[in-house]
């Protein structure tokens, strides 16, 4: 999604060197995708092996000085989530951003995730509603393909902060497919301003403490 195609991860004295998405090296990435010989290769691992790799991603990658470390996770409340928390605990975790789509089938999963955060003592920084409303490029009619408002409702119900909603935008999907920088290509779009506003709120939350 970030336009780095199959680079090799190098080893240096301080560990694995992350892959950089930009020439200025302000955005460092690490993913198991970089460690596979073939992009279609299935990683058929049970929990303990996944847990071990996540430990290495935290301790064996030469991250250098960072302002923010963002961790993208699979759905659920299992091995990966527990492993990330265990490994990051000693470095202090600022909190979690929960992402949902508007419909009840999806907010149902996020309710369980909220319980997970409470039980494991992770602060919830806020909730984002994604794929919220699709504006037809032909006639501008807005269709709520995945319903509407579920994220905000859930935020109220659980007394979490609602960070905002991001529309369902085919231009964003296309950017991710092509690995082009959506934020640079469509700075005028409503999707961009939604994401930008959420990022700004989040950053100010992080600076608050």
């Amino acid at each position: 999604m970030l336009r780095v195609c199959r680079p090799e991860v190098h080893q240096c004295e301080t560990g694995w060197v992350p892959v950089y998405a930009d020439a200025q090296q302000t955005l460092a990435l690490m993913s198991i995708g970089f460690l596979l010989e073939h992009p279609d290769e299935a990683v058929v691992w049970r929990g303990p092996k996944k847990t071990a790799l996540i430990g290495q991603f935290v301790s064996d990658v030469a991250w250098g000085e960072l302002d923010v470390l963002l961790v993208d996770t699979p759905p659920g409340t299992s091995d990966e989530h527990l492993a990330v928390l265990e490994n990051l605990r000693k470095h202090r975790v600022d909190g979690a951003v929960l992402v949902t789509t508007p419909q009840a089938v999806s907010t149902g999963d996020v309710r369980r995730e909220i319980t997970f955060c409470k039980k494991t003592g992770v602060r919830i920084l806020g909730l984002v509603e994604n794929m919220s409303g699709f504006v037809c490029p032909h006639c501008s009619e807005c269709s709520n393909i995945f319903s509407k408002g579920g994220g905000e409702e859930l935020a109220k119900l659980t007394e979490s902060e609602f960070l905002g909603s991001v529309p369902l935008d085919p231009l964003l999907t296309r950017s991710l497919e092509e690995g082009t920088d959506f934020l640079q290509a469509f700075p005028e779009s409503a999707t961009f301003s939604a994401i930008n506003a959420i990022a700004t709120t989040l950053l100010s939350r992080l600076q608050d403490d």
């Binding site: 699709f134 037809c136 490029p137 032909h138 006639c139 009619e141 269709s143 393909i145 369902l168 085919p170 999907t173 296309r174 497919e177 092509e178």
Partner: peptide, 18 residues
Amino acid sequence: GFVCPRCKNTSQIFPPTT
């Protein structure tokens, strides 16, 4: 694909780029 209920045009919301 999604067919707009108003103008009946199809949009590829998750485009099959490959």
